[in-house]
Amino acid sequence: MLKKFITLTVLSFGILFSGFQVTHAQDMNCTDFTNDPQGLMDFWHSNGYSATNDPHDLDRDNDGLPCEVSQADYDEYVADLQANEGELKQMKVKLKLVRECKGEEHFQKQQQIIQS
């Protein structure tokens, strides 16, 4: 009986503490992005990585850029992101205005908004 109790106790603790394991995301390396520089910059930027926040050690020279990406390429990437975000905001505003225009009498106004 004591043997069963000890076995159950050990198994219970094993099951209980197995849920507390810390899991880490897959470690990424520069070779993972060899043919995908856009994916590399997406990964770096979307995770907010920098010279002081580089858990994957993609910035070995500590210049704030991953895997020897040039400053000019990264600046262009960020500028494109910001431009796309601006265009998306404009499209959302236009869509909202189009949705507010209801009925046949507003058809021309809808077309003007879409074309602007």
Rank of each mutant, 00 (worst) to 15 (best):
Lys3Phe: 14
Glu105Tyr: 08
Ala51Cys: 05
Val98Asn: 04
Cys30Pro: 09
Leu97Pro: 01
Asn53Tyr: 11
Ala51Glu: 13
Met91Leu: 15
Phe107Ala: 08
Met41Glu: 06
Phe20Gln: 07
Arg99Ala: 04
Val69Thr: 10
Tyr74Gly: 07
Val78Tyr: 07
Gln112Gly: 03
Asp32Pro: 00
Asp61Tyr: 05
Lys3Gln: 07
Leu65Arg: 04
Pro37Phe: 03
Asp75Leu: 08
Leu2Lys: 11
Thr52Asp: 08
Leu40Ala: 00
Val93Leu: 11
Gly14Lys: 02
Ile6Glu: 01
Ser46Ala: 05
Gln115Lys: 12
Met41Asn: 10
Thr52Asn: 14
Glu100Gly: 12
Lys4Ile: 12
Lys96Met: 00
Gly48Ala: 03
Phe107Met: 13
Ile114Gln: 00
Gly48Ser: 08
Gly103Cys: 09
Leu81Val: 15
Thr7Pro: 03
Ala79Ile: 01
Leu95Val: 01
Pro37Ser: 01
Val10Ala: 11
Asp42Arg: 04
Leu8Glu: 05
Val22His: 08
Lys96Glu: 01
Ala83His: 05
Gly19Glu: 10
Lys92Asp: 00
Thr52Ile: 04
Glu68Val: 02
Gln71Phe: 05
Gly19Met: 10
Asp42Asn: 15
Gly39Tyr: 07
Glu105Ala: 09
Gly86Met: 02
Val10Pro: 10
Pro55Ala: 08
Glu85Cys: 08
Gln112Asp: 11
His56Leu: 04
Arg99His: 13
Ile114Met: 04
Asp59Thr: 06
Val69His: 00
Val93Thr: 14
Asp59Gly: 02
Thr9Ala: 04
Gln38Phe: 03
Phe43Trp: 05
Gly64Phe: 05
Lys109Thr: 14
Cys30Tyr: 10
Ala79Cys: 02
Asp75Tyr: 09
Met41Arg: 12
Gln38Thr: 14
Val93Ile: 11
Asp36Thr: 09
Tyr74His: 07
Gly64Glu: 09
